[in-house]
């Protein structure tokens, strides 16, 4: 395994948990799967559909998102948005994230 591959693998581990927070942050406005994927990727959150779509359903099942089929357009799509529980979880995750950023910044002050 080369150094680049190692960095890539570890970076993936780092990113894994952030997808949930990113979804919760973006879904104040209802969105459907592919549109959300695009928004995330454009925002620099690299995630593939195979991860995102099952994740959305899981968050829905946990009650952090609500979902609704929209049949107004030619193609019926399932729209997701954050539930009240989801907003509270989002607030908690944001606090956690900021704490982490501060801690890591403190820890890596020297080595940069």
């Amino acid at each position: 395994m080369t150094l680049d591959e190692l960095i890539l693998g570890q970076a993936q581990e780092l990113r894994r948990g952030t997808v949930v927070l990113a979804c919760l942050a973006l879904l104040d406005e209802p969105q459907y799967g592919y549109a959300l994927l695009e928004t995330l990727n454009n925002a620099g959150i690299a995630v593939d559909g195979n991860t995102l779509y099952p994740l959305l359903r899981r968050l829905d099942k946990q009650g952090l998102l609500t979902s609704e089929w929209n049949t107004d357009e030619s193609r019926p799509r399932k729209f997701y948005r954050v539930s009240p529980d989801g907003s509270r979880v989002r607030a908690g995750l944001i606090r956690e994230w900021q704490g982490l950023v501060a801690s890591i910044a403190e820890l890596t002050k020297e080595s940069r």
Partner: peptide, 14 residues
């Protein structure tokens, strides 16, 4: 059925 519908829409969207 729900997952099938969503998958179809997603594939078509992509």
């Amino acid at each position: 059925d729900d997952i099938a519908d969503e998958l179809r829409a997603t594939i078509a969207d992509t």
